[in-house]
């Protein structure tokens, strides 16, 4: 076990390329043997195929097509998942909604990682006043429960962004809002991990050595320390995607999420409560899809954690 950890250090400081390869292979092998992680990966691939492949069979126009004569229809051959309050096909909406939900998950997690790593690295590496300032800030953000912060921020940023055009689609500006507020309210945990890693790594011999040969601080951070903290970052990012998808669902459920007609799995659940008994198909399908995608990402994250960090016990 120790040997592997040493291997990581050695390989990433750029000495033994062959070891690096075999390390990667080892991680892959460990990951592959992790059945849950593999199941998660397969499930996730299926879900991605559902959302993006499905788009080949139904058009977005169809997903937004309203037909008030067909409202609140239960699942049928024509509408396998039923229709909503204005007669839109729920199956088609879960396909396009899934794309947005996944997009939100990925972009929010990206923001989370960027902010978290930046804050953690700066605090951990430079220490001193910067460290305590940043950590106080992190603590403050941690102290307010995320959902409260999200709700207040969702109101603050409401409609502050214009609609955006991406991949030939027009997305309501509220998608950007949701991505940003989820990103900037979820980085604190990662920042703490990264800071802790930096604190311990910056005292290590190879860093001290880098200092003595006159490498600049930024280069040390980027080239020497960061690569060694990549494992927890990957894990946190993976789980971050799942959490972002969940957060989006929570905000949407409380009515402050992405605005129609852009569908997301979250905002399809928006008015679900009124139809808990009369039209359960309106909330069951998007709800199940959320559970499935979060579940598979959690499996994946769990597997990655085990594969990347050989010391964990499962």
């Amino acid at each position: 076990m120790e040997a592997t950890a040493e291997g990581v250090v050695a390989s990433l400081s750029g000495e033994l390329n062959t070891v690096a390869l075999s390390l990667r292979q080892m991680i892959w092998r460990r990951f592959r043997r992790h059945r849950m992680a593999m199941a998660g990966a397969v499930m996730l691939i299926l879900l991605v195929a559902y959302c993006f492949g499905g788009a080949l069979f139904v058009s977005e126009d169809y997903a937004n097509f309203t037909d008030t004569k067909q409202r609140l229809q239960p699942p049928s051959r024509e509408h396998p998942f039923g229709t909503d309050t204005v007669g839109r096909d729920i199956l088609a909406r879960t396909i396009y909604g899934g794309q947005i939900s996944m997009l939100i998950g990925l972009s929010a997690a990206t923001i989370e990682v960027v902010v978290g790593v930046l804050v953690g690295a700066l605090a951990g590496y430079y220490g001193g006043i910067l460290d305590s300032l940043l950590m106080r800030f992190t603590e403050a953000m941690f102290t307010i429960p995320q959902l409260f912060l999200l709700l207040v921020m969702a109101k603050f940023f409401a409609n502050k962004f214009p609609a955006i055009h991406i991949l030939g689609r027009t997305l309501s500006g509220s998608v950007v809002v949701i991505v940003i507020i989820i990103g900037i309210t979820s980085w604190m945990y990662l920042a703490r991990i990264v800071r802790a890693d930096f604190l311990s790594l910056k005292e290590r011999e190879f860093i001290v050595a880098a200092h003595t040969v006159g490498t600049r601080n930024l280069a040390i951070i980027a080239r020497h320390i960061l690569p060694n903290t990549v494992a927890p970052i990957i894990v946190a990012a993976t789980l971050g995607v799942a959490n972002a998808i969940l957060s989006e669902a929570y905000i949407s459920f409380l009515g402050l999420g992405v605005q129609p007609p852009t569908a997301t799995w979250g905002n399809m659940l928006d008015r679900a409560y009124n139809y808990v008994a009369t039209a359960p198909w309106m909330w069951i399908f998007p709800g199940l899809l959320i559970v499935l995608v979060v579940l598979s990402i959690n499996f994946l994250g769990d597997g990655l954690r085990d594969a990347l960090d050989p010391t964990t016990v499962t």
Binding site: T68, A158, N159, G173, P260
Partner: peptide, 24 residues
């Protein structure tokens, strides 16, 4: 908001585009 979605479609049918934001 339901009406908004329906009207958006009706207007597009005659070549008018509307964005349909909603606020608290």
């Amino acid at each position: 908001q339901d009406a908004q979605a329906v009207i958006q479609q009706m207007l597009r049918d005659v070549g008018i585009e509307v964005q349909i934001p909603s606020w608290d």
